[in-house]
Design a protein around this nucleic acid. Structure first.
Lengths: 187, 187
DNA sequence: GAAAAGATTTACCGATCTGTAAACCTTGGA
DNA sequence: TCCAAGGTTTACAGATCGGTAAATCTTTTC
C-alpha cells in the first residue's frame, strides 16, 4: 500500500466518473480500469461513496488550482481576472473531453440536500463564489456579493449550455454580459 | 390496455425519475410505485430507455405549457414576458419538490452527444431558445438571437444555482441582469 | 355460453451491483 | 532462515439490474 497508490486510484476513478457518470460506473469497471483487484480497492476506500468523495475532493483541488492560475496568467487586475474567467471557461469548453461540470452532475445524481456528495458539491460552488466575491471586492465593485453572484450565474449558465450546444460560444456571450455588469458596478 | 393507462405509467415514472434520477431508478421500483406488473410495463415500453424518452416527452409538453401560460398570465407584452419568465422560475424554485431541470440532469446522466436521451434533452433546450428568440424579436430587440441566447444563459444559471443554494434568490438576480440586457437591446 | 384474443401475473433468467472471507504472495526483521 | 505483518488475489455472497416465457385472468366475438 504505497502512499501514492491511493492517489493513483482516485485519479483514474475521477476520469471514469467524469466520463460515464457516478451510478453508471460500477466498482468492477473501476477495478478493470485501474488494474487493481476489488479487495484492494475496498482496502483503500470502505465504500463507493467514500471513493466518490475522494474523487470530488481531488477535482475540487485541481480544478481550482488550474482555473485560478490560468486566470492569473491572462490578467493581472481583479477586474480583468473576473472577465478572464470566461476566457478560461472557453478554453475548457473547447477540450475534446469536456463533459460539463462534475459538481453539477454530482449534485444532480445525489439530490438530497443532506447527502454528503451533494453537500461537498455545494461546498465547491460556495468556494468558487467566495473567490469571485473577493475579486469583485478588490476590483472596487459597488456591491461585491451581488456582482459575484451574478458572475457565477453566468458561469453556470455557460457551463450547462456549452454541453448541449457542443460549442464554446456561450462563454463569449457570458463574457459580454459580465463586461456590462462590471462596467455598471465600477461606474 | 386502456389508452390512458400508458399515460398514467409515464406520469408516475416521470415523478420518480425526477425525484431519484435515471440510473438510480430501477424498473422494479417503478413497478412497485405504479402498482403494475413488470411484464405489463414492458408491454407498454420495450425498454427502459423508451420509457425515459416518453417521460421526457411528457415533461417537455407539460413544462412548456405551464411555463408559457404562466408567463402570459404575468405579462402581456413580449418584453414584459421575457422578464416575467424569471418570475415564473422563482415560483418554480420555491416549490418543495424542486430538484432542478430534468433535461439538464438527463443530459448529465447520458452524456454521449448521439444518445437519444441526450439528443431529446438538447432538443427541449433548443425549443425553449426558439421561444425566447421569438419573444425578443417581437419585443423589437436589436439582435433577437443574441438577446435570447443570453437570457437563456441566465435561466440555466439560475436553475443550477438554485439547486445548490436551496433558494429562489438566483431568479431575482438573473431577472435584474436580464432587465439590463433588455434595456440595452431596446435602446 | 364457448372460444378466440388480448391484457396481466407469477416466476424466473443471466448479468451486474456493492461488498467480503479466506487463501496467497511479498517483504522486513530477528 | 523462519516468522510475522500486511497487502493482494481468487472466489464468492446477497441484492438488484434490465428483460422474458409461460401460465392466468379478462374481455370480446360469434
Amino acid at each position: 500500500m504505497r502512499p501514492n497508490k491511493r492517489d493513483e486510484l482516485v485519479r483514474k476513478s475521477l476520469q471514469v466518473f467524469y466520463r460515464d457518470g457516478f451510478h453508471a460506473t460500477g466498482m468492477d469497471k473501476l477495478v478493470v480500469e485501474t488494474g487493481v483487484s476489488k479487495t484492494s480497492m475496498y482496502k483503500h476506500f470502505r465504500t463507493k461513496e467514500e471513493l466518490i468523495l475522494a474523487a470530488l475532493r481531488l477535482r475540487d483541488e485541481t480544478f481550482r488550482e488550474d482555473f485560478l492560475s490560468r486566470i492569473q496568467e491572462l490578467a493581472d487586475t481583479p477586474a480583468g481576472q473576473l472577465l478572464a474567467s470566461f476566457d478560461v471557461l472557453r478554453e475548457w469548453f473547447q477540450q475534446e473531453e469536456y463533459r460539463g461540470c462534475l459538481f453539477i452532475k454530482a449534485g444532480a445524481e445525489y439530490q438530497e440536500g443532506d447527502h454528503p456528495i451533494h453537500k461537498q458539491s455545494a461546498e465547491h460552488k460556495q468556494i468558487m463564489l467566495d473567490y469571485l466575491t473577493d475579486l469583485a471586492r478588490r476590483a472596487g465593485a459597488r456591491d461585491p456579493e451581488h456582482l459575484a453572484c451574478r458572475i457565477q450565474l453566468l458561469q453556470e449558465g455557460a457551463i450547462v449550455t456549452a454541453v448541449f450546444l457542443k460549442s464554446c460560444e456561450p462563454a463569449q456571450e457570458a463574457r459580454a454580459v459580465a463586461q456590462v455588469l462590471l462596467d455598471s458596478a465600477l461606474a
